[in-house]
Every structure is written in C-alpha cells, then in structure tokens.
C-alpha cells in the first residue's frame, strides 16, 4: 500500500518538474506528458485512499497523514476539474507543485493506521473533515490561480479576457472554499456540543478556522467593494494561502489544544 502512496508522490514530483520545464520553455509536448503523469498520480492516490479506507474500516481522514493526503487529493481533483471542464491549462504549472508539496508534508507524518479515538467516532466526522478538505483545497487552488494571474499580468500585451477569467476563477474557488469552510465550522460546532457539551471552546484550531473565515470574508467584500478585482485580489488570494496552511498544520504542531490528535 505504501508503494501506491510513494508512487503518487514520485509521479507528482515528475509531473511538477515536466510541467515547469514545459511552461518555462514553452514545450507543448512536455506539458502534455506532464498532464498524463499527473493524471496517473491522481489515479494512484485515489486508489491508495480507497484501499486505506477499506483497511482501516473507516473514512481515512482521522489523523494528520490521512488528512494531508486527502488535502493533496482535493487539490488534484480541483485541478483536474478546472482543466477538463474549463480548459484552464495554464493552472497546472503552479497547482501540480502545490499538490506535490502538500503530499510531501503527508509523507513526513506517521503513517500507521490507528483506531479512532472515542471523540472522533461520530457521524459529524465525515462532514466536518470532508468539507475542510474541499475548503482548504479550493483556497490553495485560488492562490495558485492568483499566482498565475500575477505572472500573466506582468507580460506585455497580456490577454485581458484571459486575466479576467483568471480573476473570476480565483473568486469562484474562494466562494466555494468559503461555503465549505462555513460548513466545517458549523458542523464542528454541532459536533463539539455533542462531544464536549459546548458549541465553541476557543480552542486554537477553532480560532484559526475563524480567522481564516474572516480573512476570506474580507476578500469577498473587498472584491465587491468598488469592484476591486485584478492584481490586488490576486495578491490577496496568494497571501491568504499561508493562513490556510497555518490553520491546517501550524496550529496542530505549534499550539496545543483539543484538536491535537496527532
């Protein structure tokens, strides 16, 4: 089973390298190969997650390794949807490396299958953590699109329509991520009340989810206000990514609290 995981990791690395070279040197063929390698990595990772779920006899989202793996998978899924459905080929050069980095973080975590601790045995588990996976992935993709916007806008005679599409896509990803993060926070509150008796305990993980939520609420308002969009919002989407990553990994490792399940 580990072979599948490390296979996906290596394939994602290869796809990242090929895609970057393909993009920098404008080699269409390399980009095409990178895409195929990426799809293979995505498929392998999907199979790995399914097998892990069957072996553990539960949804494989119970610890930092499983969550990070699902997070990387979520980024891959969204990248695949954006390319296949919206023909956003330009996103691969940043999104594939992003998925690789998140999966590398997963690779550093303890990988053994552990029993669920009693507090995690709840029907809220899937909704709370599943929505977090989609929310974080969407925010990362929004940051990737933001980065592509910044790079593309630097070019002389940049294609205005393409920039406009990128800006809109970044906004849509944030809108989706915001809805998912709201669901994460609300289901978390309902779950906390079932498990610990209080909807909200100001645990650091809760607080950082709230901070992330507020940051993206500010993004949404700034974008609506006087129709600010374009380069400033692209920078915002990019700079907000470390906040998401801190909420995801930093809080668990740097600040102790109820969510430190390991």
């Amino acid at each position: 089973m580990n072979a599948l995981f490390f296979g996906s990791l290596i394939l994602l690395f290869a796809a990242s390298a090929l895609q970057m070279i393909g993009s920098v040197f404008k080699k269409e063929k390399l980009s095409k190969i990178a895409w195929i390698v990426f799809l293979t990595a995505f498929a392998a990772l999907s199979v790995f997650i399914v097998i892990r779920g069957f072996s553990a006899k539960r949804v494989p989202l119970a610890n930092q390794f499983e969550f990070a793996t699902a997070f990387a998978w979520g980024i891959c899924l969204m990248l695949a949807v954006l390319r296949l459905r919206y023909k956003a080929d330009w996103i691969s050069a940043v999104a594939i490396p992003a998925a690789f980095i998140v999966l590398s973080y997963a690779a550093l975590q303890p990988k053994e299958i552990t029993d669920l601790m009693p507090a995690l045995k709840s029907s809220w588990f899937v909704f709370h953590i599943g929505s977090a996976v989609f929310s974080y992935s969407a925010f990362i993709i929004a940051g990737c699109v933001g980065l592509r916007y910044i790079l593309a806008s630097k070019k002389e005679n940049a294609d205005e329509l393409k920039l406009h599409r990128m800006d809109y896509m970044s906004y849509r990803m944030i809108a989706f991520g915001f809805l998912m993060l709201t669901i994460t926070i609300l289901t978390g509150a309902l779950w906390a009340e079932q498990a610990w008796s209080s909807f909200w305990t100001w645990d650091p993980k809760e607080v950082w989810a709230l901070i992330t939520w507020i940051i993206y609420a500010v993004y949404l308002h700034l974008r609506l206000r006087s129709k600010k969009s374009g380069i400033k919002m692209a920078w915002f989407a990019l700079i907000a990514v470390p906040v998401v990553l801190f909420t995801f990994a930093g809080v668990n490792t740097l600040i102790p609290g109820l969510h430190s399940y390991g």
Binding site: W202, V207, L210, I211, I214, I215, V218, H221, R225, V251
Partner: peptide, 24 residues
C-alpha cells in the same frame, strides 16, 4: 462596508492574540 471590513480585521487580530496566549 469599509467600517465592517475594519471591524472584521480587528476581530481577526484580537483572535490571533487569543490563540497565541494560552487563555483562562
């Protein structure tokens, strides 16, 4: 809306402090 955005940012800033200093 601008005042609202400032308030949101202030709430976020206070929350950061609250998460870094152990509470209670």
């Amino acid at each position: 809306m601008r005042f609202g955005i400032i308030l949101l940012l202030l709430i976020a800033a206070v929350s950061v402090v609250g998460s870094l200093i152990p509470q209670g």
